[in-house]
Amino acid sequence: MAVDTSNTMQGGPSGTLMNAVNPKKATATDSTKADQDKFMTLLLTQLKNQDPLNPMDNAQITSQLAQLQTVSGVNKLNATLDSLRGDYKASASLAATNMINHGVLVPGSALQLAGGKAVFGIDMGTAADQVQIEIKDSSGKAIHVIDMKSVKAGTMPLVWDGTLADGKKAPDGAYRIAVTATTGGAKLKDAAALTFGTVASVSTGAAGIKLNIPNVGTLTMDDIKQVL
């Protein structure tokens, strides 16, 4: 026995239900068309009700039509910008998701020694004649010093193997780093320490895209100085 499904799929109860669940969304084209219709309705109403002794001249009509074109152009431009914003957000979300499980260097002085290895970095705004990196324990005491010369501007990843000033090995744990850079004897203000962390997850919301990095915090893509 053949079953007629045309009524069910198009205009029957199921079709009505589907239309209710998935209503047609208004598009920028629909909005522009609606504005044009309203404008033309107002213009025709003006023409019908104009004073026969003082009718609208061609310049007035041309001016109003030009306004219509301007409004339509602005609506189309806004629609294009909305589309570009959507594409940018999608691209940014994808880029952030790809950061998961990647090690990154971000501004910070925390240093974690694990398995006899601690990754960190320095961010140099300008080149320096000398750079001194102090590694400090929880009490703030410097336990190891790294001296570098002729350091170029940019981001530089570094590794500390836990060796102390007396040649012994420091126990695994939390430490801190301090960076001092000089050129011609003058201290530079644009030298900063970078801490290392691994991106665990990504969250999105009204505040934008956030990278969640354990033991470091919640940061933005702009905070990332280097991906390792």
Rank of each mutant, 00 (worst) to 15 (best):
G154E: 02
K169G: 01
L105D: 08
I143D: 01
M156V: 15
S203A: 07
V179E: 05
K117W: 07
S203E: 13
S91A: 15
N101Q: 14
H102E: 09
G116D: 11
T80L: 06
A92Y: 04
V151C: 05
G154K: 02
A128G: 11
Q130H: 15
W160E: 00
A153L: 07
I135H: 01
N98L: 13
I177D: 01
E134P: 08
A118N: 10
P171G: 09
D190L: 03
I133L: 12
A174H: 04
V119F: 11
V71C: 02
N101D: 13
I100S: 08
G116R: 08
D129P: 12
G197Y: 10
F196A: 13
A191N: 07
I177E: 06
N98P: 03
V199A: 04
A92D: 11
A114T: 15
S139W: 04
Q132N: 15
T126Y: 01
R85N: 14
M124A: 09
T80E: 12
Q112R: 03
S203K: 08
G140C: 11
G162V: 00
K141G: 05
A170G: 10
V71A: 08
D147H: 08
K149I: 05
I143H: 00
L158G: 06
R85V: 02
A90N: 15
D137L: 10
A186D: 14
K89Y: 12
A186T: 14
K76V: 11
V202W: 06
T97D: 14
A96G: 08
G184N: 14
G86W: 07
P171W: 02
V159Y: 07
A142N: 05
K89D: 12
K117P: 01
A170Y: 07
S138Y: 13
W160P: 05
V104H: 02
G173L: 04
D190I: 03
G185T: 00
A66C: 00
L77G: 09
A142R: 02
D190A: 10
K136W: 05
G73M: 01
P107I: 10
G73T: 06
A95V: 13
I135M: 07
S139R: 08
G197R: 07
H102G: 02
A118Y: 11
V202I: 05
K136T: 06
F120E: 01
S91I: 08
K152S: 11
V119C: 06
L158P: 01
L164F: 04
G154L: 04
K169L: 06
D147W: 00
A174N: 10
V159G: 08
A92W: 02
D82M: 04
L81P: 04
W160S: 03
G185V: 01
D147N: 10
A192P: 05
Q130V: 15
V159W: 05
I177F: 00
K76T: 12
D147C: 01
V74N: 04
T182Q: 11
P107F: 06
S139Q: 11
S83D: 14
Y175C: 03
T183A: 00
E134M: 09
V74W: 03
A153Y: 03
G162C: 00
T182N: 14
